[in-house]
Amino acid sequence: MLTRLQNAVEQWGGKNKLIDQWLNNRRQLLIHYCQLANLPPYDNSPQLPDSDGVHHFCNLLVDYVSEGHFEVYDQVVSECEKHGEDSRQLASRIVPQIAKSTDVALDFNDKFGAPFDDDDERMMELDEALSRLGQAMEERFAFEDKLLDTLHRHYSEELQAQP
Results as ranks from 00 to 15, higher is better:
77 V>E: 09
124 M>I: 12
40 P>C: 07
154 H>L: 10
149 D>S: 13
102 T>Q: 04
43 D>G: 09
90 L>A: 09
140 R>D: 00
97 Q>E: 11
55 H>P: 00
3 T>L: 10
163 P>S: 15
82 K>Y: 13
88 R>N: 06
79 E>G: 10
130 L>Q: 01
54 V>H: 02
64 Y>C: 09
26 R>I: 12
83 H>S: 14
46 P>L: 10
161 A>W: 14
89 Q>G: 08
107 D>F: 03
67 E>S: 15
70 F>R: 15
113 G>I: 00
62 V>K: 05
45 S>V: 13
2 L>Y: 07
1 M>E: 08
155 Y>N: 11
123 M>V: 12
37 A>E: 01
19 I>H: 00
22 W>T: 00
22 W>R: 03
64 Y>P: 03
18 L>E: 04
113 G>R: 02
28 Q>N: 14
112 F>E: 02
42 Y>R: 01
68 G>L: 14
3 T>P: 03
158 E>G: 06
92 S>A: 11
66 S>R: 15
132 R>W: 07
111 K>G: 03
3 T>H: 10
146 K>T: 06
151 L>Y: 09
73 Y>V: 08
125 E>M: 10
52 D>F: 11
53 G>S: 10
28 Q>R: 15
93 R>Y: 14
80 C>I: 10
98 I>L: 03
157 E>V: 10
3 T>K: 12
153 R>E: 08
41 P>T: 06
141 F>N: 06
9 V>W: 15
163 P>E: 10
128 E>F: 13
128 E>S: 13
10 E>N: 14
140 R>I: 06
151 L>N: 07
131 S>Y: 13
62 V>M: 13
161 A>D: 08
78 S>C: 13
92 S>F: 03
33 Y>G: 01
136 A>W: 01
31 I>P: 01
57 F>K: 01
122 R>P: 05
157 E>I: 14
148 L>I: 06
150 T>C: 07
43 D>P: 04
130 L>V: 07
58 C>M: 04
102 T>V: 06
139 E>R: 05
57 F>I: 02
33 Y>C: 02
66 S>A: 15
130 L>R: 05
24 N>L: 09
4 R>A: 14
70 F>K: 15
142 A>Y: 03
112 F>H: 03
65 V>A: 12
7 N>H: 13
155 Y>M: 14
2 L>N: 06
122 R>M: 09
123 M>K: 15
87 S>K: 08
19 I>T: 02
62 V>D: 07
70 F>Q: 13
152 H>S: 11
43 D>C: 11
61 L>G: 00
64 Y>R: 06
163 P>V: 12
152 H>L: 11
154 H>S: 11
122 R>F: 04
92 S>D: 04
15 K>Q: 11
57 F>W: 03
9 V>S: 10
157 E>K: 12
13 G>V: 04
142 A>K: 05
111 K>N: 06
148 L>D: 00
69 H>F: 15
5 L>H: 10
14 G>D: 05
31 I>C: 04
2 L>C: 06
116 F>H: 07
95 V>Q: 06
73 Y>M: 09
128 E>G: 11
26 R>G: 04
